[in-house]
Amino acid sequence: MVRWPTKDELTQKFVEYLIGPNKTIDDLQNQWVAKHLILGLREAVYMLVVVLKFVYDNITAVTATGEKLDELGEEYGVERKAASKAIYSVTIGKSSAVTSDTPVPDNFLVTTTPIGNDPPIQYRVIPRQAKVIPYGRTSVDEVLVECTEFGERGNVPEGAINLVAQAGFDFVSNAVVYRAGTNIEEDEVYRQRILDRKRNPGKGGTAHDYKTWAESVNGVVSALVIPLNRGNGTVDIVITGVNGIPDQVVIEECQSFIETKTPAGMADGGVKVLAPTPITINVTLENTIWTAGYSVETGSQFVQSALIDYIERQANKDRVVRVVDLLTTAKQAYNPQDPSKKPVLVDFSMSVPEANKFLANTEMAVVGQITIT
C-alpha cells in the first residue's frame, strides 16, 4: 500500500535539502525568508499529495480492471474469488447384481444428455473415494463426481447427469448438488468488495467484518449479519449462494472460515452461518395478448426469464416482492435477440400473487410456479 508523506515529513525533507542533514525547522529561527519559503513550498506540495491520494484512493479502485484491480484488492487484503468446479453426488450401478465387490474407478466419466448442438457436460468421479458396489447389489450411492469445466456451466438441474460415458457400468442416476460451481468473480462484484473494505477497515469483529469474511468464501454471493439474533454474545450470518439457497458444503466452509476469525472470548456456537429460509413466490398470468409474431408458446419463456430475474435479484435486494413490480416486469419483458427490445406482451391479468410479500431478515424469495395462459 502506498504511504503518503505527512506535512511534518515534507517539512523535514525540505529543510534537509536546503541546509543539510540532521537539521530541523527550528534551526531557521533567524532565517525568516528561508523558513517561510520552506513552509510555503510544503503547503503547495502537500496539496498535491492530497490530490494524488484522492485520485489513488477514490478513482483508481473505481476504474481499474483485470490484473490492476487484483493488485489493488491485494493491498487491502481482499482477494478475487477464483472459479470452481461443480460437484454432484450420484448413484452409479449395473443392470444386474454384481458377483463380487466392484469398485468405481477414479475419474470414471459420466455426462448429461446432449441437447441440440450443445455437447454434453462431463463429470468425473473424484479420486480416492473408494466407492464399491457390494457383492449382490446393483449400485452404490453418494459417489461424488466433479465437472471437467470450471464455472457455473456445470450447475445442471438435479437428475440431469444421466449417461455413462465409458464401459464398466450401466447407469448413473439420482444426481444432486453437493457443491455448486462458480465463475471467477466479476470485476464489478470484486470492486465493490474492495471499496467496502476501504470504507470499513477491519476492526476485529464488527458486523461489517463478519460480512467481509463471509463474502470472501468461494460460493458465497452475499451475507447478511444479524448481531444478537440469539441473545447476547451471538452473531448470525445469513448467506446466499450461486443458486440462491447455498448448498450445505458452502455453509460448512463459511462456518469453518469464520471460526478462524472469531475474536477471543466469543462463546462456542456464538457465531452461526445459516441459509435463508426460502419463501416460494408463485406467479399466474392469464388472458394474455401477445405482440405480433409471439404466442403463449413462443413468448412465455421471455416473460418467465424476466420474472425469475426480478424475484431472485431485485425483490431479494429490496426485501419485498411487489405486485406492481411483477406487473411492470411482465409488461416490459422482451426477446434479448430483438434489438428494438419491444415487449412481447400486449395485455394480461395477474391473479397470483394478490398482495406484496415482505421478507424477514432470514428469508429469501425463490421462484415457485410461473403459469402463463
Rank of each mutant, 00 (worst) to 15 (best):
V145K: 01
T329N: 01
Q369I: 14
L10A: 03
S100W: 11
M350T: 01
T277R: 11
W290P: 00
E297Y: 07
E149G: 07
E9I: 04
I251E: 06
E215M: 07
E142I: 00
Q248V: 07
V238Y: 02
E149W: 12
N335R: 11
V2Q: 09
F54Y: 14
Q332G: 11
G159V: 01
K94E: 09
M266I: 05
V143D: 03
E158H: 08
T212N: 11
A160E: 06
N316I: 06
G293N: 10
Q301E: 15
E16R: 03
E146Y: 00
T99W: 11
A315R: 05
R153I: 14
K13D: 12
A355D: 10
T11G: 06
G159Y: 04
E146W: 02
V346S: 08
S95G: 13
T102Y: 05
R179C: 02
M364F: 15
V323W: 05
T138S: 14
S84W: 03
I258S: 04
Y294K: 02
L18K: 07
M266P: 00
E16P: 03
E185N: 09
D318H: 03
Q255G: 08
K341I: 07
Q129K: 03
R179D: 00
L307M: 08
E16G: 02
V366K: 09
G77I: 06
D347T: 04
T328E: 14
E74W: 13
S84C: 08
V221Y: 10
Y135D: 15
S300N: 09
H208A: 08
T99F: 13
G204E: 15
T113Q: 09
V221N: 12
I279W: 08
I251A: 01
R153V: 15
N30H: 08
I245C: 04
Q31S: 07
T284Q: 14
E67T: 11
S351T: 15
T60S: 15
G181D: 05
R193T: 03
P339C: 10
M364N: 09
R128N: 12
L345G: 00
I184F: 05
Q301S: 14
S139G: 10
K7F: 02
I279F: 10
E146N: 00
T234A: 11
D196W: 01
G293C: 09
L285F: 06
F358S: 15
Y210E: 10
I25E: 05
V217Y: 03
T280V: 15
F171D: 03
T113P: 02
N243T: 10
P263V: 07
I372G: 03
R80S: 00
D268N: 09
V55E: 15
P246M: 03
E43N: 13
S300F: 01
N107T: 06
T328C: 10
I239A: 03
D309Y: 07
S305I: 07
V49H: 08
I25M: 13
V176K: 12
S340H: 11
N117T: 13
K13S: 13
G270C: 05
L10V: 09
E71A: 12
S100A: 15
G151A: 08
P114G: 08
D141P: 04
R199I: 01
Q129Y: 02
